[in-house]
């Protein structure tokens, strides 16, 4: 399946992981210096490597936006779809062949604004796809407009006096809509995020991993958050593991982010339930004949 052309690992100087799971002819990527998306894309590749998934059986689906460039860089069966519809395409792929491992990579605006409807209904349906959200709190590709996850009072090019809306907590939204796995990772906490993504892929139902990314070019500049390094240090100092957060008061958690698996239960997975239904109807028809 893999056609590397003339690109050899030795000529290009890259790690085994990058050579194995990415398309070196498209690297270096177009993301800005210090963008968290590159770190998160590596996390996804590492999680897939750790789980030992076959490249032929893994599908990466993405929508539109900075984060969605990942489908072009990762070397699997990939599809770059229309804005917000990544989950809709992924649902179709998963139903056509439930044995495939379908992973959606999307941005916060793509998944919660343009594709918000697909998100809540895929979560409700509990279809066995994994959604990795690269959440940078802003629309980066189009020039820094505020997104549904921009915190209240934060600045964007379309919110020059501060954003009036309260932000979405995407992991909480998925939980509220009935997802059986909702978790949060971050660009800074690399090992934890790799483990969480692994758990999410391993989980049989709908799993959503909201990964806090950093956007130094738009969000950082507009909000005087400093460089990519400062933004990653903010994540280091303000993210609290889920086990510790469970023992804390809500007032102590104000302005902090909880890291880890926030919610995990087992419901019947949709493609399995669909297969069971077809089997039952066939059996009933045969019995009637």
């Amino acid at each position: 399946m893999v056609n590397r052309g003339d690109v050899k690992q030795k000529d290009k100087q890259m790690s085994n992981l990058v050579y194995k799971y990415m398309r070196p002819e498209h690297l270096p990527h177009i993301w800005c210096p210090g963008c968290g998306n590159g770190i998160i894309m590596r996390d996804v590749a590492q999680a897939i490597e750790n789980l030992g998934l076959s490249r032929n059986n893994t599908i990466i689906v993405s929508g539109i936006g900075c984060s969605s460039r990942a489908a072009g860089y990762l070397d699997f069966n990939t599809i770059h779809t229309t804005h917000g519809r990544a989950i809709a395409f992924a649902t179709g792929i998963k139903l056509a062949n439930p044995s495939l491992e379908v992973i959606v990579i999307a941005g916060d605006g793509d998944i919660s604004a343009i594709g918000g409807n697909h998100l809540i209904h895929a979560a409700r349906r509990n279809i066995g796809i994994t959604v990795v959200v690269m959440n940078n709190n802003i629309y980066g590709m189009t020039g820094g407009q505020y997104s549904p996850t921009t915190p209240k009072g934060a600045f964007g090019t379309t919110a020059p006096y501060g954003n009036l809306d309260r932000p979405f907590d995407i992991a909480g939204l998925a939980y509220g809509a009935g997802a059986s796995f909702a978790a949060r990772g971050s660009a800074y906490h690399v090992q934890q995020t790799i483990n969480i993504i692994q758990e999410g892929i391993h989980h049989s139902g709908f799993s959503l991993i909201d990964v806090a990314s950093v956007c130094p070019t738009y969000y950082g500049r507009k909000n005087k958050s400093g460089s990519a390094v400062d933004m990653l240090k903010w994540q280091r100092d303000n993210m609290i593991p889920a086990e510790k957060a469970a023992k804390m008061e809500p007032s102590e958690l104000k302005g902090k982010l909880v890291l880890g698996i926030l919610h995990q239960v087992q419901y019947k997975e949709f493609t399995y339930a669909y297969d069971q239904l077809i089997k039952r109807l066939y059996e009933e028809r045969e019995a009637n004949e």
């Binding site: 890259m14 790690s15 990058v18 990415m22 690297l27 270096p28 990527h29 993301w31 210096p33 210090g34 963008c35 968290g36 998306n37 590159g38 770190i39 590596r42 660009a187 800074y188 690399v190 090992q191 990519a228 990653l232």
Partner: peptide, 8 residues
């Protein structure tokens, strides 16, 4: 290596 966004 873990945190390099550009795999450089």
């Amino acid at each position: 290596e873990l945190r390099c966004p550009d795999y450089a």
